[in-house]
């Protein structure tokens, strides 16, 4: 079974993000980049499926300039078999990303596409859904459990929805986007890192894919969250209740 996993390069969630003074973007000096954590979960799931079946192929795909190779190598070190880098140096909105991915899916013909439910940089949470629509494929978003049928023709996916869990099933091919609790991704082992250097990263130019990348979204400005003011210390429970009632007016 061939599984395609999407990988986005995003700032490390542990780095401090500073918005540029003109609001046009974030300061990129001294920022470390990682695989989008939700994509890492998607990759882990793909690797587990392959390991369980004892056969198959896990293919990574990412869009961006050559620096993205770093994240693809990490994914290959974790155990993916090969990678595709769609070379593109313009900013893309979710729909453009989905259109590029649709072309890659048509070309690769995977039975399953596993994606992060959203990227932690823009939090758009759209690419998976849009890709499903463009391909006319079934989708299961916010997956917390994925069970492949014995004949490998269908999946049952548990989704984390408001107030509970929903289990849905569909026939493959289809798209699954991962939620946080789907699994805990592995770390690459040293033998994995050594093997990764021999694995193929195929480069294709986005411009050659005949996908409509025209922007439909412009970012007007970015603002940092307002600074939280220091809290207040109170001596007694009575005082706290008084303040919650009179000042905060929440009880």
């Amino acid at each position: 079974m061939k599984v395609l996993v999407t990988v986005k390069r995003v700032p490390d969630p542990e780095t401090t993000i500073r918005v540029k003074s003109d609001g046009s973007g974030i300061e990129t000096d001294n920022i470390k980049y990682v695989i989008n954590p939700f994509d890492e979960i998607a990759l882990e799931e793909a690797l587990r499926i392959k390991e369980k079946l004892g056969a198959g192929e896990v293919v990574l795909v990412s869009i961006g300039d050559s620096v993205v190779t770093e994240q693809l190598r990490t994914g290959l070190a974790m155990g993916a078999d090969r990678a595709i880098l769609v070379g593109c140096d313009q900013d893309l909105d979710s729909l453009a990303v989905a259109r590029i991915l649709a072309k890659i899916v048509e070309d690769e013909g995977p039975q399953l596409v596993l994606m992060g439910k959203q990227a932690i940089d823009d939090d758009a949470n759209q690419a998976g859904q849009m890709l499903a629509a463009l391909l006319g494929w079934p989708q299961a978003t916010f997956a917390s459990e994925v069970v492949l049928s014995d004949d490998q023709q269908a999946v049952k996916v548990t989704r984390e929805v408001d107030g509970g869990l929903e289990t849905i099933g569909f026939a493959l091919p289809g798209i699954i986007t991962s939620d946080l609790r789907l699994n805990e991704p592995r770390y690459a082992s040293l033998p994995g890192i050594m093997k990764a250097r021999k694995k193929e990263i195929k480069e294709v130019a986005a411009a050659d894919l005949d996908a409509d990348m025209s922007p439909r979204l412009t970012i007007n400005s970015l603002e940092p969250p307002t600074q939280k003011e220091a809290g207040k210390k109170v001596e007694t429970v009575e005082e706290l209740i008084g303040l919650l009632h009179d000042e905060a007016k929440v009880i």
Binding site: E70, T74, A77, Y187, I193, R197
Partner: peptide, 15 residues
Amino acid sequence: TDEQEEICKQVRALC
């Protein structure tokens, strides 16, 4: 090298 960077990154993740 990229490989040495990756080694540091993965060891850091493990630790």
